[in-house]
C-alpha cells in the first residue's frame, strides 16, 4: 500500500477514534467489547469507503451508524442490554459544557437540552430505537405498552426534538 494511503488511514482513525469508541462504550459498557466493536467499525468503513456518499451526510455520522449497528448485533447476541437505557439517557443528556476537553457545538447542546426535557415515555423509546436498534414491537414488549402506543411515543418524541432544532416541515 502506498505511504499516502497509510497516512490517510492514520488521520481517519485518529480523528474519529474517540467518537467511535465513545459510542461503543456507551452502548456496551465493556472496554474490551467496545474496543472490538470500534476496531471492526473502522475496518468496515475502510473496506466500504466506496459506499460512502457525502451528499447523504457527514463521514462521522456514517461511521457512527456502522458502530451503532455493530453494537446492536453484539448486544443481541448477548441477549441482554449491558447499559441500562436510563443510564445511557443520563449519559447522553449530561451537560458537556462543563467539560473543557469535550468538543461540543451549540446545536449539540440544544439537542441535549431538548432530549433532557422530553418526558421519559418519549425519550426512552428514542434511546431504545436509535441506540439499541429495538423495533417498535420490541419496545412495546419491553415497556409493556401496545405497539401503536410505542410508535406514537417515538414519533412524538422525535417530532419535539426536530422542533427544538428548528427542522421544519414543508
Amino acid at each position: 500500500m502506498a505511504a499516502g494511503d497509510a497516512e490517510t488511514a492514520a488521520v481517519f482513525v485518529r480523528r474519529y477514534q474517540a467518537r467511535v469508541y465513545g459510542l461503543a462504550f456507551a452502548l456496551v459498557g465493556s472496554s474490551a467489547i467496545a474496543e472490538e466493536i470500534a476496531q471492526e467499525a473502522f475496518l468496515r468503513a475502510w473496506r466500504h469507503a466506496g459506499a460512502y456518499d457525502p451528499r447523504k451526510g457527514r463521514a462521522v455520522s456514517w461511521l457512527l451508524t456502522i458502530t451503532r449497528n455493530l453494537a446492536v448485533d453484539a448486544v443481541r447476541l448477548r441477549g441482554d442490554m449491558p447499559v441500562d437505557p436510563h443510564i445511557l439517557l443520563n449519559t447522553l443528556t449530561r451537560n458537556e459544557r462543563a467539560n473543557p476537553a469535550a468538543a461540543t457545538f451549540e446545536d449539540t447542546e440544544e439537542l441535549r437540552a431538548a432530549l433532557r426535557a422530553l418526558p421519559p415515555e418519549q425519550s426512552t423509546p428514542i434511546v431504545l430505537s436509535v441506540f439499541y436498534g429495538l423495533t417498535a414491537t420490541e419496545i412495546a414488549d419491553r415497556e409493556r405498552i401496545p405497539v401503536g402506543t410505542a410508535k406514537t411515543r417515538l414519533r412524538r418524541g422525535l417530532a419535539k426534538l426536530r422542533e427544538a432544532l428548528g427542522v421544519t416541515h414543508d
Binding site: 477514534q17 469508541y21 465513545g22 456507551a26 474496543e35 449530561r94 468538543a103 422525535l158 432544532l165 427542522v167
Partner: peptide, 22 residues
Amino acid sequence: LVDELLLLAPERQPPAGFEAAV
C-alpha cells in the same frame, strides 16, 4: 436528527494500542 443523536455519546479515548491495532 438520528445522526445528531448518535453524536451525543461522549467521546472517550480508547485504550493504549488501539490505533496501532486498527
